[in-house]
Write a protein that binds this DNA or RNA. Sequence first.
DNA 1: GTTATGCAACTAACTGGTTAGTCGGCTATC
DNA 2: GATAGCCGACTAACCAGTTAGTTGCATAAC
Lengths: 193, 193
Amino acid sequence: MARDAEETRRRLLAAAADEFAQRGIAGARVDRIAAAAGANKALIYAYFGNKDQLFDAVFDALVVSTVADVPIDPADLPGYAGRLFDRNQTHPQALRLLLWHSLERGGMAALPPAVVASNADKAAAIAAAQRAGQLPDRYPPEELLLLVIGLSLLGSAELAPTDGPEALARRRDVVTDAVARLVAAGGGTAAGR
Amino acid sequence: MARDAEETRRRLLAAAADEFAQRGIAGARVDRIAAAAGANKALIYAYFGNKDQLFDAVFDALVVSTVADVPIDPADLPGYAGRLFDRNQTHPQALRLLLWHSLERGGMAALPPAVVASNADKAAAIAAAQRAGQLPDRYPPEELLLLVIGLSLLGSAELAPTDGPEALARRRDVVTDAVARLVAAGGGTAAGR
DNA sequence: GTTATGCAACTAACTGGTTAGTCGGCTATC
DNA sequence: GATAGCCGACTAACCAGTTAGTTGCATAAC
């Protein structure tokens, strides 16, 4: 077997992603990660520091990259929701890691700066679209962003299982349609209920 | 100190609710629960069996009761969403316990029969209202129920913090307004997008 | 009303196994 | 033969669950 530190590191990270996504930080076992990666446990400490820093590395690689890789289009929020939905299907670990992070670390407030900044950018983009009249301004930008992201992740098979590809496609349609209704013109503001 | 098994049991359950809500099943410490309840650890095993069964007892007391205590009104889903939202503010542990359960046990599929049955009833009530024309039938009943419950819980301070009572009230308005838009008459079906 | 008895409630200390993290040495490669 | 990559074996702490024994209370006998 060829010696390749970068490759070993990659295998450890992938095994850690599986373990953390499935069991969370407290439930994850360092020995199990090393065994799954076919590597020695000591390498985890050599490459990543400790268990918590290993989680951070996994989180950065999977969740932070998701936030960066799915750009928002304020003029087409249903499309954005659909893309987020799809990303969740192809990367089922990401949402679970986000939830573990929220529960075991200090909620969304403890998210990495990159994620916080990205959310602020997205909210700003929504606000600009609202000022330009492309988007109704009945919800504050942060609230609208929360609704759209929340609805997208809601459909994920993790929380509410769908069985079969046609059920999944229907779920996707429901989510994008729901977002479309939220941003449709007409009706009053939230306060005017 | 008076000896009162029922009272001791109650204290243990309350302490366990705090511990499990904060740290989850794997992260919870039996010793910590006993200390917080001012009781001996062995009593936990005498009264509840083991750590997992203690979690079940906590879950039943807090989450299952929530499901039962907030009845659905298919003719007023925004009101239902608002009541769920409020319940989450007064019982902040419930949502966290639900999330821990989803992540550490096997997803929503592993929910207790009482919850599954209650959800089925709620979906049936929605289906009946759709047949009666009180509710648009653009979403299947189960999907609509998921959207409404999801939106209600989404606003919870746990996942997306709100600071201050006025921000909370606005969040509540956003949630109920969003549900109102989903069930408003007009527009096409989900499939017809 | 005082004392003996039975028992549920409770406790301190222990056990067996697990777990994060470490350390000294081995090995492939250049 | 120097060095980066890697490993087996170890440790100290931790943790769920158990056990043998103590304490307070109720009931009843005298």
